[in-house]
């Protein structure tokens, strides 16, 4: 019995080892190509604050993260600005191709839809409608300033929700305008996308942010890589995890005012 069992287990071990070894084979050449050229190219929109800023000293969260990833992989980051990106909601019209870049950043939503086209790495930044108010929820009949922005959130659902809650709605043309009107007391509170809201709150002392219900739309941003580039994705992902570990990510979040917001507090 001992003899039979021993050789059985050896055969089994060999099979498992061979399969495990085969699993370590390189599935594609994406990482190899990037390393050969020494350049990691990223496609970004002109501006998508605070992920991509039109600003050399503070280039935006996504760019800073990618620069660090490139640095840690001994690569140089090259940004490729796409004029249509961020302006049109249909990515097919952005005309971004594999020939232009390996990574897409600055407003890539890590949704199931996006994952049909790109591999995504979640960077933990969420977008959704946020209420900017003093203390508790504004009372019925309060005047609410709304800055819809370009983030692609559902405006129709928002206006229905606000109306059903009994608020008066006023449209604001920019985050700066929201700050001004709040100061002037024209608005009792304001609603903006979470990315814009941070800009408003940092300029309006005494105000705080609270998520509106998730049913009004909530999504996460991340980095996009071409589908099928598994080796490159693994490298980027492992660099990202290392940066989360050593505090670099937290540092960048603070730098761009991307503080964590309480998840549950809806109105």
């Amino acid at each position: 019995m001992a003899r039979g069992l021993k050789s059985d287990l050896i055969a089994l071990g060999v099979m498992v080892a061979l399969l495990g070894g085969a699993s370590m084979l390189q599935p594609d050449t994406s990482l190899q190509l990037v390393e050969r050229s020494g350049v990691l190219r990223v496609c970004v929109p002109q501006s998508f604050p605070p992920l991509v800023n039109d600003n050399r000293t503070n280039p935006g969260f996504d760019i800073s993260i990618l620069e660090e990833i490139a640095k840690r992989s001994n690569l140089r980051l090259s940004t490729n600005v796409s004029a249509t990106m961020g302006r049109d909601f249909n990515p097919a019209n952005w005309r971004i191709t594999r020939a232009q870049c390996e990574v897409v950043a600055g407003g890539v939503v890590t949704s199931v839809m996006t994952r049909s086209f790109l591999e995504t790495i979640d960077t933990g930044i969420e977008n959704g409608w946020v209420m900017i108010s003093k203390g508790a929820a504004p009372a019925k009949g309060a005047r609410i300033g709304v800055y819809p922005g370009f983030a692609g959130l559902d405006r129709l659902k928002l206006s229905t929700y606000l109306r059903d809650s009994g608020y008066q709605i006023a449209l604001a043309s920019s985050p700066e305008a929201v700050v001004q009107e709040l100061k002037a007391g024209q608005y009792d509170a304001a609603v903006a996308s979470s990315l814009d809201a941070l800009q408003v709150v940092s300029a309006s002392p005494g105000y705080s942010t609270n998520w509106l219900p998730e049913s009004l739309g909530r999504f996460a941003f991340g980095l996009g890589l071409w589908k099928g580039d598994v080796t490159l994705k693994r490298r980027v992902l492992s660099a990202w995890r290392a940066m989360q570990q050593d505090g670099f990510v937290a540092q960048q979040r603070a730098r761009y005012g991307l503080i964590e917001m309480p998840k549950t507090a809806g109105l």
């Binding site: 191709t97 086209f117 589908k227 099928g228």
Partner: peptide
């Protein structure tokens, strides 16, 4: 893999 990987975003 080359036949199924992404080439153009959105397509």
């Amino acid at each position: 893999n080359p036949y199924f990987r992404g080439e153009v975003y959105g397509e």
